[in-house]
Amino acid sequence: MSDIIEGQNEEGRRKKFTPSPTESSTVVKAKQALADALGHPAEEQFDLEIATNKELDEAKKEAGVSSEKESLLRNLRLALDSSDMGLLYKATERLKNLREKGEYIDLIPVSVVHGGKANEVSGLDDSHPAYQDYGPTAHMTGAEKRHFIGQHSEGVDKTTRDFKFKNWEPTEEDKYEAGVEKSPGQALERRLIIDAARAEKFEEIHKKVIDTILDKEILNNALLLASTREQGPNLDFMKAIVKRLDGLEKSSKKDKKKK
């Protein structure tokens, strides 16, 4: 078979895809998947505007050496605000190095509540510490949890931002098992946001969750997690978090003025 498509002019000729007889369909499919992936957007709505002001230059110096959480957060936010890829890279690399050396806090809480939709997105195994939960879904598999939530959840409580289940209320013991969290609702926030930060796919559900969160600490931790995701920084998610943090800070300033 000729490897030139007939009827095309010289410029338009392309090699026709003629897989070798020894190539399995899996190999061929993988090649086609890679070709398709190359045409996929690079997840970079990030415009590479090069910031050259003194603040950014100093932040870059600091980002390479600082191990202060505040400083890392400041640099990440500055990188996002200024669309400075270089600063983002330095800050995330520093954070990763610190975490690899065990010199940095583990941002994943051992105890978080309620299984469900989150791990469908994250792809994490149910045995991951992030999924150690309590409540009616505590001993269920991921599929069972999803089924249970689908069947019994009456939605999310607007006050606690917790799932509401028919015929079930958390006991004091359940709440205690939630560990460091102040409330099951807050634990759920943390759980969802960690999943979203680690997730390979970015789902609308997590964007919505971010806009309900009031705890800056959770948002800050999620920002750090999202920046050190194995597949590279989750920029969409990071921007959504920063937007939320900015919103919270503006509201807080307004509140102070009113007082």
Binding site: A30, L38, A42, E43, L48, E230, L235
Partner: peptide
Amino acid sequence: AKLKIAAGKLRELMSNEENKGTSA
């Protein structure tokens, strides 16, 4: 940094079990 993001995204899109071990 740009290449790293692109490679990460590529890896994510090729993370299907069937693609593992193939030349792609």
